[in-house]
Design a protein around this nucleic acid. Structure first.
Length: 197
DNA sequence: TTATTGATTGACT
DNA sequence: GTCAATCAATAAA
């Protein structure tokens, strides 16, 4: 079952937690890829100095952050990597959840072709750029609705509250106080979370 | 107009 | 542990 549009209208932090255990699906021609999310981060719009929408910044790059919940925000960073977010809340409120890591569950051979440097299965999708590379997520999917037939999310086995870890977000040291906000969520015992920390 | 830097990854010491 | 790759958005001038 694809997650309903109403799911994405919830509070952004609630969505970030609820996405753990959900399965991200990608269709490329006849090939189906799927991965179970194990690490997410919430980004809270204009007042969040770590967000691309800090101080209400709005440009061609982050325009899809301002869509209503249930769309993808895919951006290019460090001159070479793509990262995917799930947009949350109402239209014109730029809040989103970054998908940082997942456990590959389907189409692993196809993922390996796109991630030739991955040594172990966990290396296919244990980082936001790696996840996008493995699942072929790029500018073509920026702004895409998440109930379409190329990219969507389904409910998976729910992760019990006590198995969810919380920490500051990764890679946002420039963000002042916001760098310390506890907005990273992950499955504690999962070997598929991103390295470092 | 030019300069800085990043919601990262991978190679190397 | 250090650092280069590589480029667009933003900031500075």
């Amino acid at each position: 079952m694809k997650l309903p549009r109403a799911f994405y209208r919830q509070d952004t932090v609630a969505v970030a937690r609820a996405l753990l255990g959900c399965v991200l699906w990608r269709r490329i021609g006849r090939t189906l890829l799927a991965a179970r999310l194990v690490e997410t981060e919430a980004y809270l719009g204009a007042n969040d100095m770590a967000s691309h929408a800090r101080r209400g910044l709005r440009s061609a790059r982050n325009e899809s952050m301002y869509l209503e919940g249930g769309h993808a925000y895919v951006y290019f960073t460090y001159g070479m990597h793509w990262c995917m977010n799930v947009v949350t809340g109402e239209a014109d409120i730029a809040e989103a959840v970054l998908l940082r890591a997942a456990e590959p569950v389907r189409g692993i051979e196809a993922m390996r072709k796109r991630r030739p440097k991955a040594k172990r299965d966990r290396d296919l999708t244990n980082g936001p750029g790696k996840l996008c590379a493995a699942m072929s997520i790029d500018e073509n999917l920026d702004g895409a609705a998440l109930d379409g037939n190329l990219l969507w999310l389904e409910q998976g086995e729910p992760v019990p509250e006590e198995e969810i870890g919380v920490s500051p977000r990764i890679g946002v040291d420039y963000a002042g106080d916001a760098a310390w906000w506890p907005l990273r969520f992950f499955v504690r015992e999962s070997p598929y979370v991103s390295p470092h920390r």
